[in-house]
């Protein structure tokens, strides 16, 4: 599904290397988690994969099935099945949530050569998905993310995911700013989307999200690289002991990380 090889990335504005050779393969239907200390490059990885400006890839490649991600516009990556759930979903005043969802869905369908969805079918689709995420009619009517609580914003991200039905979902610290109940709701939304043909890359600081979204593989990222890969037990170990031992083992000073 997702193949990242030797990815090196630096910031465009300053000469600062953020990713220093990331290798990662996520198979179809699997959930991979990436954990790591602050500044390890986790969010950068998610932005580079989805095509945000401001980063320069100096080496390496990234493919989503047959699509060369690094050579595609953000909208082309989305149409190819990539989805990034933002850590900080963006507010767009004056644009209704429904308009936004429908524009996005139809744009992707058009890019894939499919027919646009009819207004009636779309309404049915959204209502069904929104209900299970406890998103009410008012939230659908309001401008995108405007006046939404932290939990509502994250639920809205999952709603978009449910409607756009991407193949590869990246969740960038989706648990940040959520209380326990909101996290459970979000996790349930994600779990409902788990499917043979869909993969997830869950970026998080904390093990607690992984109690709800059970990963198949856990990676530890530090200093722009993946330094350890293991099963769910790796997350528990980090939760218990912190990153210090792992960093020391790989010769990375904590200050640098």
């Amino acid at each position: 599904m997702l193949d990242i090889k030797n990815l090196h990335v630096k910031l465009e504005e300053e000469d600062k290397q953020i990713l220093k050779g990331v290798n990662l393969s996520v198979e179809s239907g699997k959930v991979h988690a990436i954990m790591g200390p602050n500044g390890s490059g986790k969010s950068t990885l998610s932005y580079v994969l989805s095509g945000r400006d401001g980063y320069e890839v100096t080496e390496g490649e990234a493919h989503l099935n047959d699509t060369d991600l690094l050579d595609s516009e953000p909208e082309e990556r989305a149409a190819a099945g990539l989805f990034l759930a933002f850590q900080y979903p963006v507010e767009i005043p004056g644009v209704g949530n429904m308009t936004f969802l429908r524009t996005a869905l139809n744009a992707q369908r058009k890019a894939r050569g499919e027919e646009e969805i009819s207004a009636g079918d779309f309404l049915k689709l959204v209502r069904g998905k929104a209900k299970s995420l406890k998103i009410d009619a008012d939230m659908l009517k309001r401008p995108v993310n405007v006046g939404f609580s932290g939990g509502e914003k994250k639920r809205n991200e999952i709603l978009q995911m449910a409607i756009l039905e991407p193949k590869m979902c990246i969740l960038d610290e989706t648990d940040s700013g959520l209380d326990v109940d909101a996290m459970r709701l979000v996790a349930e939304g994600v779990n409902a989307l788990r499917d043979e043909g869909r993969s997830f890359l869950v970026i998080t600081h904390y093990q607690r999200l992984l109690d709800h979204i059970k990963p198949d593989v856990v990676h530890i990222m530090a200093d722009g690289r993946i330094i350890e890969t293991g099963g769910p037990e790796l997350a528990l170990e980090v939760e218990k002991n912190g990153y210090a031992d792992l960093l020391a083992k790989h010769g990375i000073s904590e200050v640098m990380a």
Binding site: G51, E73, A79, V90, G94, F100, Q108
Partner: peptide, 28 residues
Amino acid sequence: ETALFYLRSRGVPEEEATALLVLSFVAD
């Protein structure tokens, strides 16, 4: 730029995303 990227990351082409953001701007 952040809002533009958000829309594009959802599959909305740049020109259409720009148009939506113009509507957003004049909404008040």
